[in-house]
């Protein structure tokens, strides 16, 4: 097996605060890789660095054999991403969101329509393709984001808490697409989630991060064995402790209020 993501001594500082502290790990091609940790552990920051959105303070990263510092555009072509926060344009239709992405990624005209249709069918949104995204439910938006992230046939797909806030039916649905994808197309999946059963069921490899440091890695079984736990959830709690972490105050919510004051409404 070959390594499709290699991270060596990666660091990220925001001023004096170290969000990611000297982490090293790798992801095997075709694997489902789970990156677990409590709120504020540094998962999203790491993903932002791996996906070129945030420059690392130091460290070496290779994605699909391309160096993050020198081959940004090649790295960018290699992956698709579903961000933790929504990233669709609500004022456009599902089809328009897909088309925007296809054009940005230079998908050939002859293949574009076919791929968009195939992917929308895969996530059961084909019949709603001309609806505005603002009329979509949370689960539909997530599915659309997954479909969108695949239009350019990426080698890797990053999923940052893709199932947060969704009902169990939708969560199941989403994970069954993901497993299917990794099995059928050999796409490497890099995911984060707070639902330990999801990770336990699907992940080939797990890395646990807390306070910016890696505190455990292996398979679900090896992590349970190392900690003497019955379930991954128990192993996770033993590794990270049971103190409650606070999520960051909802900056998005306060902005929504401003947006409304300034005459735009969003759902």
């Amino acid at each position: 097996m070959s390594k499709i993501i290699e991270v060596k001594n990666l660091n990220k500082k925001f001023g004096d605060f170290t969000a990611v502290n000297d982490i090293s790990f790798s992801v095997e091609k075709g694997n489902i890789f789970a990156f677990l940790g409590p709120n504020g552990a540094g998962k999203t920051t790491t993903i932002k660095m791996l996906t070129t959105l945030l420059p690392p303070t130091s460290g070496n990263v290779k994605v699909n054999n391309f160096d993050l510092n020198t081959d940004r555009d090649e790295v960018r072509k290699s992956f698709g991403i579903v961000f933790q926060d929504p990233s669709l344009d609500d004022d456009l239709t599902a089809y328009e969101n897909m088309n925007f992405h296809a054009v940005l990624y230079g998908v050939p005209k002859e293949e574009k329509e076919g791929r968009i249709e195939e992917l929308l069918r895969l996530v059961d949104l084909l019949d709603r393709k001309n609806d505005y995204v603002k009329n979509y439910s949370g689960g539909m938006k997530r599915r659309l984001e997954i479909a969108r992230s695949l239009i350019h046939n990426p080698e890797i797909i990053f999923l940052d808490e893709p199932t947060v806030g969704l009902d169990p039916q939708t969560r199941n649905h989403i994970w069954s697409y993901v497993v299917d994808l990794s099995k059928r197309k050999g796409v490497t999946v890099f995911l984060t989630t707070h639902y330990m059963e999801e990770a336990e069921k699907m992940a080939d490899k797990i890395v646990v991060i807390d306070h910016g440091k890696i505190i455990g890695s292996g398979t679900s079984d090896s992590l349970k064995k190392d900690t003497g736990a019955e379930s991954l959830e128990e192993a996770f709690l033993k590794l990270t402790g049971s103190e409650i972490r606070h999520d960051e105050a909802g900056s998005l919510d306060s902005l929504r209020t401003h947006a409304r004051v300034w005459g735009r409404t969003r759902r």
């Binding site: 996906t51 070129t52 959105l53 940004r72 555009d73 090649e74 960018r76 072509k77 992956f79 991403i81 961000f83 926060d85 929504p86 990233s87 669709l88 344009d89 609500d90 925007f100 992405h101 940005l104 990624y105 230079g106 900056s251 998005l252 902005l255 947006a259 735009r264 969003r266």
Partner: peptide, 15 residues
């Protein structure tokens, strides 16, 4: 707004 509502990220990760 594009930044706060996340759409900017979609453009910024594109090659």
């Amino acid at each position: 707004w594009d930044r706060q509502f996340g759409f900017l990220k979609e453009t910024m990760v594109a090659p």
